[in-house]
Design a binder for these strands. Structure first.
Lengths: 342, 342
DNA sequence: CTGAAAGCGCTTACAG
DNA sequence: CTGAAAGCGCTTACAG
């Protein structure tokens, strides 16, 4: 019998299509309670569902939010962030959850350049967009021209309507302070991109602040370079053992580096935390899988998604919001750190 | 200046809107090469992009594929599969990648009951749907009424147009055979739901086949019950040490159980693989993070997404496809298994 | 091969 | 408060 349209509802209820539309959209504003009830009962009876596509075309609002993942270049190949980092699925889930509560759906896409993003925004009449991990100013300003609200996650950009971030400096501070409180005096910061990435740089700043506050000798607390993957961590482990043998604790900018260090130590008859205390960053699930469990910094990525969704909906509805949201971080203490005794 | 429509293109090219539409859709079928070139040059010049919303409304094809994640009940709370298991983001990424190549976009939603799914299919005019992890026949048959092609991933269902699965029996077989070839005679199967889940049951069947083929004593190869999480694995580790001390190798139905067992052994001064060989299942990234690296069964989940996307597009375009796709599995040998010597 | 016209299912001023 | 009508930007028979 084909799909049920507003016309069917109007006919059966003995009113016009416009009135049905008004009832459905204007939550008893310009309509009598009586007609509202009449219309709604027919809506229920026929199990009528408003067609979002038609609404989008006529109103210009799609109730669709674009979730864009930047593609990153890894080993010369373009890899969608979503594949590379399962981490993001949790944020995605948070966004989806909140957005669907509010009647919006998600359009998920990996994007490579500004045109892809812009095209989707226009062709799908997206009401708002959240972008993960895209840093280029040029792309941002181009996308911005579309006029839709833009929320940036984990990649601060002034072109964005709103940035949702974590407090990297503070995270670095509490991680390092934890080690200092355990009595460590020679602590390394282990990462890559310390000087080029705002994100990593922030963590290092916090590291330095703790070092200074704790009256440690900055010269005793070097940066140990490491690729941000498991092999990089293993290399760093070797470096620590061979070149930085006086270091007793290390704060890494990623759990995965911490895993590599621990793995290298264990494979070479050394122990974490007996020979080295290690603090990671991210609170990946694997922190609990490993022996010893890894002390790390946790950010509630699911919560980040929820927050982003709230902002998105506000923006889509023209409500003003703050320009920056800094979400809290937390130190999770497990077994990879212990008191320095000597 | 407002958005550029087909009308603008038609005017500038001196043809009708219908002709522009024909050029854009019928890849030089019912149109002269000359008008085609003329129209396309104006399309380029104006940087015209076809409005998908309008097309969907008039044609009934949205070029939108729904990707639905079932919500599961965990500890009495409903948790979207996407949050619970980051695993799925990789499949999602595969789907997205292939689908966007073919001009489709993804509508991602967590669904709780049949109506949510059905509503979205109708209100968004979805061309096809892929569902992760939903088992209820009732829901499926209801959704099926919508008429859109349905692809099921990891949850075989006869109502689905196509099932994309892995060969669990074979996976169980090669995992166990690997242990037998290493000389183990007393091997445990460690999991939960062995008798109720088709998935786990299949793996156990493969386990049994290898045991029989290897002329091992079935009584020496028990099922050790374990919750499918890290604590469950630790409990299983204790059980193995205390109650099944003659067991020298174990095949678990999930990496996460394997991690728990290894963790328990290490925390209690025992060694994997010296005291126990362990084979996991899934090839989670953490298999490489841990010392020793975990021998496991790998399924190419990204590839699964790609395959699902191909099928989805074929179905959306009315092309016949096979009803079942069984994707290959592979044994990845790392350090958690070794030769049994005694 | 091309174009005029109707139609997809809504929303939105505008009269009444 | 309610309805008739135009319009959103396409596609699709149908004539020509």
């Amino acid at each position: 019998m084909g799909r049920i349209t507003m016309k069917d509802v109007a006919n059966k209820a003995g009113v016009s299509v416009a009135t049905v539309s008004n009832v459905l959209n204007n939550v008893n504003k310009k309509t009598t309670e009586e007609t509202r009830v009449k219309v709604m009962s027919v809506v229920d009876e026929l199990n009528y569902k408003l067609d979002m596509t038609a609404r989008a075309l006529s109103s210009g609002k799609s109730n669709l939010v674009g979730v864009f993942f930047a593609k990153h270049i890894i080993d010369g190949k373009k890899v969608p962030l979503l594949k590379e980092n399962p981490f993001y699925s949790e944020a995605l889930s948070g966004i989806e959850n909140r957005l669907s509560e509010k009647g919006y759906q998600l359009l998920v896409a990996s994007i490579d350049d500004k045109d892809e993003a812009l095209d989707l925004i226009r062709r799908r009449m997206l009401d708002a967009v959240v972008i993960f991990g895209m840093r280029s100013d040029y792309l941002w300003s181009t996308i911005k021209k579309s006029g839709v609200p833009l929320v940036s996650i984990d990649a601060h950009n002034d072109q964005a309507s709103v940035n949702v971030e974590m407090d990297n400096e503070y995270a670095g501070y509490i991680a390092t302070k934890h080690l200092i409180e355990l009595g460590h005096k020679k602590i390394a910061f282990c990462s890559k991109y310390t000087d080029v990435s705002e994100l990593i740089g922030g963590r290092y700043k916090g590291f330095l602040r703790a070092i200074k506050e704790g009256n440690l000798n900055v010269e005793d607390c070097p940066i140990v370079e490491s690729e941000i993957n498991i092999e990089g961590g293993e290399d760093a482990g070797r470096l620590l053992l061979e070149k930085y043998s006086d270091i007793t604790a290390v704060f890494t900018s990623a759990d995965i580096i911490a895993f590599g260090i621990i793995k290298y130590y264990q494979a070479n008859g050394k122990s974490v935390p007996d020979d080295l205390s290690v603090v990671g960053f991210d609170n990946l699930a694997a922190c609990e899988y490993i022996h010893p469990g890894v002390t790390t910094i946790k950010q509630d990525i699911y919560e980040k998604g929820i927050k982003a969704a709230d902002i998105l909906v506000d923006l889509a509805q023209g409500i003003e919001v703050e320009k920056n949201y800094v979400l809290p971080v937390e130190l999770i203490i497990r077994e990879s750190t212990k008191k320095y005794e000597k």
